[in-house]
Every structure is written in structure tokens, then in C-alpha cells.
Nucleic acid binder design. Structure first.
Lengths: 110, 110
DNA sequence: GAGATTGCTTTGACAATCTAGGTATACCGT
DNA sequence: ACGGTATACCTAGATTGTCAAAGCAATCTC
């Protein structure tokens, strides 16, 4: 039984998470929803992908987190982009652009 | 010491190989050169990435191979896109387009 | 005949993602 | 009061694609 392909390409998840958080503080579950919504339902991030990614990203200092209670009265861990995270987002966007350009060049070859 | 990022995003290599071969039969080393050249030196595929990928792709029936001697008089294994491979290339290009579109949507969000 | 280039291959490591589970709280309909 | 659904967090295991680093051999140039 062949395994499925990844929904996302490896390496894009961090960028998407950072971008989501650049629009404002969010908890993990909210990041998933925001990505889904902003992409018009085209991209779905699994929880099992997100939480390890958030942890990884926090370790690198690109986001900070704190526990808080949100309007519904429930506890959640809120993540916020740090200055370094904002810088990292720019870097990743630039390298995404480079890759897209390179692939476009190859694809237009006849 | 943190490891380097991938030069390529995982999942794009197959598409690039298939695309290269869609322009004509090639041996492995030639695929690397073609990708490099078509992308204006922006993308470089390592041999240790390419050959396993070619093997994988051949197992799936997207390319066929044969040993032959090329103009320099040396032996090399030539790969050729199959009909299924051509179909696969279309599929992968379409899903690349979808991903680019989705990410573009997210990035334009304010 | 030494060194560079071309060409194929294998090995081991690694990082990112997915699947699949688990826990717990809040809300809603009945 | 109860069950189901959505929200919210987390972990474990497996898979996979890529890379780094080798090795081997043939050809060409100096």
C-alpha cells in the first residue's frame, strides 16, 4: 500500500506559520484555521505537524508563547512573532521567491 | 552545529527530473546539468539526490532506461520519459501551481 | 602518467511531515 | 443529565526525501 504524498512541501510550513502569526498573536489551533482560511481551504495543516513545528520554531527564538485564557473562557497557548521571527519570515519569503523563479524558468523551457 | 536547509524543497525534485527528460532522453549526469543550466545556475541537484530519485521514478514506471554509448565513447545510462511519466509531470505541475497559488493568497493577506 | 572531468552507485544520517493516537474542556441538542 | 461535536494541546512511530561523503572507472589533457 503506497503512502500518500505530503500535503505541504517540506520547508513551507514554517513560513506559513510565521506569516500567520505576523498578522497577530494566535494559539496553535487558530494557526491551522487561519492558514486554512487565508488559502481558501486549499491548505490544511495537521495538528501532528503543527505542534512539533511550533515547538521547533520557538526553540529557534522566532516565536514566544504564553498561556492565557481566551474569550471563550478556555486556556490556550498563545504564540507571538518575535523580532527574529519577523526577520526569518522575510528570509523564507525571499528564498521561496527564488525557488519559484527558478522553477518557472525551468518550466518555460521547450 | 545546525544542519543546512535543503537546497530544494522536498517534492520538487521529481518534477524537475521529469521536466528535464521531457525535453529529450538524457543520462543522469546530464539531468543535473540541464536543471542547473535551465534554472540559470540557481538550482543544483546533488548526485546523491539524483540517482536514488531516478531509481524511484523508474520503479514507478515514469521513466525507462537503457545503457548506451554516447558521442564521447563512454557508457552511460539513458533515461526516457514514458507516457505515464508525461502524465505524472502534468499532475505534478498542476499541484505545484495549486500550492503556489495557495501560498500567494496567504502572503497577500494583511 | 598525473590530474581533472565525467559518470554511476552506495551508505549513513537527518529533518520534516504524516498518521494515529491520547487527554481535556466547552457547547449544543435532546 | 447525556452524548456528540468542536476546540485545544501533546506525543509516538513511521516514512520519506534529501544531503554529505565516499568509492569506482573511463576519458581527456598536459
Amino acid at each position: 500500500m503506497p503512502k500518500n504524498k505530503a500535503d505541504l512541501l517540506q520547508g513551507t510550513l514554517d513560513m506559513l506559520i510565521l506569516k500567520s502569526l505576523s498578522l497577530g498573536e494566535l494559539h496553535g489551533y487558530g494557526v491551522i484555521q487561519r492558514i486554512r482560511q487565508l488559502s481558501d481551504e486549499m491548505l490544511h495543516v495537521e495538528q501532528g505537524s503543527l505542534y512539533p513545528a511550533l515547538y521547533r520554531i520557538e526553540q529557534k527564538g522566532w516565536v514566544s508563547s504564553r498561556w492565557d485564557v481566551h474569550e471563550t473562557g478556555r486556556e490556550a497557548k498563545f504564540y507571538k512573532l518575535t523580532r527574529a521571527g519577523r526577520k526569518q519570515l522575510e528570509t523564507e519569503e525571499a528564498s521561496w521567491d527564488r525557488l519559484c523563479l527558478a522553477i518557472a524558468k525551468i518550466r518555460q523551457a521547450t
